Simulated assay, not measured.
Amino acid sequence: MGLNEFILGLNNLEKITRAPGFFKFTEHTVAAHSYRVASIAQVLGDIEENQGVSIDWKTLYEKSLNHDYTERFIGDIKTPVKYASKELRGMLQTVEEKMTDEFINQEIPEAFQEIYRRRLFEGKDESVEGEILAVADKVDLLYESFEEIIKNNPESVYKEMFVESIHTIKEYGHRPSVQYFFQEIFPELLNRDFYGREVFLESVYKIID
């Protein structure tokens, strides 16, 4: 028993399509998403630190890099299915946690098991690093969905993803990085020309205001 299976699992993440069946113009994998979330978390951490917030960078990188690793066990479930009911969501989480625990017990050397339990279980907690992860995860989804919107994909699910991401990010409005995001980064993102832009922006700014 070594760390071989953990490393092999990284290849699996390259093959798992993110939000399967949704993205049409650009496919996204779980592995690519994990890298982007880690990079976005780094940006948000820089902003927080610039505002005097103490960041545990090791914890932040661990949380963001590994936050979706366990999807190698059950894949990325379509959001409408995953959130159909609290009961179903709870059941999926229970299955994922049991499979993760079994994986750690069987494939991770005992000397490293506690480390991987910390890394592979839910990282979105009430710590600064946990909140930054939660924001970074939704910022990436916001950018993913916006890419489909500006390419005039007519399916309404992308606007729903975009709006849902805004709502979730705004829940962390007490974080300096979120305030900075909406003041400095978000307006630049929206400064693109695409069909239906005025109507779309009107609905978006109503949410932000």
Rank of each mutant, 00 (worst) to 15 (best):
D101H: 02
D56V: 04
K82P: 09
E122F: 07
S145Y: 02
E144M: 15
E110D: 13
I77D: 02
A41W: 02
E49L: 04
I104A: 10
E27Y: 09
S64L: 07
E144N: 05
Q106C: 06
E131Q: 15
M99L: 15
V37N: 04
L13P: 08
S39Q: 09
T17L: 07
H67K: 08
G123A: 04
S34Q: 02
L92K: 05
I149N: 03
E155W: 08
A134S: 14
R36P: 02
E126M: 10
D68E: 13
I16E: 01
E97W: 03
T59S: 13
I132P: 05
Y116A: 09
K24E: 11
E114K: 11
N12W: 04
E62Y: 02
K138P: 06
D140V: 11
S54H: 09
M99K: 13
E148H: 08
T94Q: 15
E87K: 11
F25M: 14
S85M: 10
E155D: 15
W57V: 14
V128T: 09
I47A: 05
A31K: 14
V53R: 06
Q51Y: 07
A38D: 05
D101T: 05
D46P: 12
A38H: 01
V95Q: 12
F73P: 06
L141V: 14
G123H: 00
I132T: 03
E155Y: 11
K151M: 09
L13F: 03
S64W: 00
V30P: 04
A136L: 03
I149D: 04
A134Y: 07
Y83E: 13
D56Q: 01
T79Y: 11
E71A: 14
E27M: 10
G52C: 03
I16N: 02
I40F: 03
F112L: 12
T100F: 07
E129N: 01
G45F: 01
K151S: 12
F73I: 12
Q113L: 03
A19N: 15
G75K: 05
V53K: 12
N50L: 07
I149L: 06
Q42T: 13
K86N: 13
S54Q: 14
T94F: 10
A41E: 07
I74K: 04
P109A: 05
L13Q: 02
T70L: 10
I104S: 06
S156Q: 14
F25H: 14
N105P: 00
I104R: 02
K98L: 12
I115W: 02
R72P: 02
E147Q: 13
K58Y: 10
T79S: 15
E27S: 14
H67W: 05
N152Y: 08
E147C: 07
G45A: 15
T100D: 10
I150D: 03
K78Y: 03
A41T: 06
K82S: 10
V81E: 12
E122I: 04
A111Y: 01
